[in-house]
Simulated scan of single mutants.
Amino acid sequence: MRRFARTMGAAVLAVAVVAGTAGWAAGDSQVVVTGPPPGAAAWRAAGTAERPLPDPWTATPAEVTRFFAGLDADRERELLRAHPSVVGNLEGTPLPLRYEANRLAITATGEARYASLAAAGRQILAFDPRGRGQVVEVFGDLEQAEHVSVIVPGADNDAVSHDAPRKPATGPAGTARALRAAAGGRGAVIAWSGYTTPVGVGMDAASGRLAEAGAVRLARLTAGLDAVGAPDPVLFCHSYGSVVCGLAARHTDARDIVVFGSPGMRAGRVDGLRTGARVWAARGPSDWIADVPNVEVGGIGHGADPASAGFGARRIPAGDVEGHTGYFAPGTRTLTAFASIARGESR
């Protein structure tokens, strides 16, 4: 009975935090953008009985790769011009084709807020303007990369904020640039704003609803990387992004999963993630995430603290990290450790 009372007390505390203390009431409920990309119906209709096009939602990335391997250059260009939104978001499609398709799709929106994403030299791996928008960008040569990292961000990230001015080494693009510079070598880093994130820290941030949808998309991304021959990735998961990574862990071939500023991974211990990846955790001394109750009751809260000794993750030094977003600041021990993990040097 005492144990039940303690559990209920923790649940009440979690709900109280979500309901209005510590600023949690600032969030808005988001409509999940998932499923096939825009233009999927026209793409399907363009196929023939003799040569159907791979379904944008049900075809595996490996099947997509085999499909494009059987096309000549003229047919590739024809599909690219007619269906850029599908080609650009179809996991398993040749990377140069995806970059070009997304440049066309971004330009076709005619929206100034996305214009910078279509600039020369940008490598946009996915773009979906629905809702708040989703964007995935590659930094480095993904085709020749010896190691690949994926930045999985938390709340308040979308296609618009991806290029918004921010404090250096923060946000998906900023952290991707910082990690690539620190890791050096022939590595690539992917800034993955590829799911509908919470806005603020309201009920969406406290529940797993958006993370569940995001986990499906993250698993598909890693399958797409595998299909085009990229190395098994390291997932760097910040804040609510660590909830996404926790739910996706068993469905990815990630080499390592690194969580920082995490409210929980929807697992009580590392073995509950059911992954063969090494799992690492970091939390800075002034990160406000420490004030979030580590419970999960009735779908509210995300469970055990991954940075706690009992969770079983490998610890990353974070004593010089400032706040909730300072994990990639140049010169910190945390960024040095992140770079070592990205290169596959840490054991």
Results as ranks from 00 to 15, higher is better:
280 W>S: 00
288 W>F: 14
271 D>E: 15
281 A>D: 04
284 G>L: 00
283 R>V: 06
245 C>N: 02
253 D>G: 15
295 V>P: 05
263 P>H: 14
247 L>V: 05
283 R>W: 04
307 A>S: 13
273 L>N: 03
245 C>V: 06
282 A>H: 10
287 D>M: 11
301 G>C: 01
300 I>V: 15
267 A>P: 11
257 I>P: 11
313 A>G: 03
308 S>P: 03
305 D>M: 00
286 S>P: 06
255 R>I: 04
306 P>L: 06
313 A>Y: 02
266 R>I: 09
296 E>Q: 15
289 I>Q: 08
310 G>E: 13
295 V>F: 13
278 R>V: 01
306 P>I: 04
299 G>S: 07
285 P>W: 07
306 P>G: 03
301 G>M: 05
289 I>D: 02
281 A>C: 01
296 E>I: 00
259 V>E: 01
286 S>V: 13
277 A>E: 06
244 V>D: 01
309 A>M: 05
285 P>C: 11
254 A>E: 08
249 A>W: 08
256 D>R: 07
306 P>F: 07
293 P>M: 06
275 T>V: 04
257 I>T: 08
258 V>Q: 00
295 V>T: 15
289 I>F: 10
269 R>C: 11
250 R>T: 15
252 T>F: 06
299 G>V: 09
267 A>H: 07
258 V>F: 08
288 W>Q: 12
277 A>G: 03
281 A>M: 07
306 P>H: 10
273 L>H: 02
281 A>N: 02
290 A>H: 14
259 V>S: 03
292 V>P: 00
303 G>M: 03
259 V>T: 14
251 H>Y: 14
279 V>M: 05
288 W>C: 00
281 A>S: 14
245 C>A: 15
277 A>W: 00
270 V>A: 09
249 A>Y: 10
303 G>W: 09
299 G>R: 07
298 G>W: 11
260 F>W: 13
313 A>W: 11
269 R>F: 04
310 G>S: 04
282 A>R: 03
278 R>A: 14
250 R>V: 10
304 A>R: 13
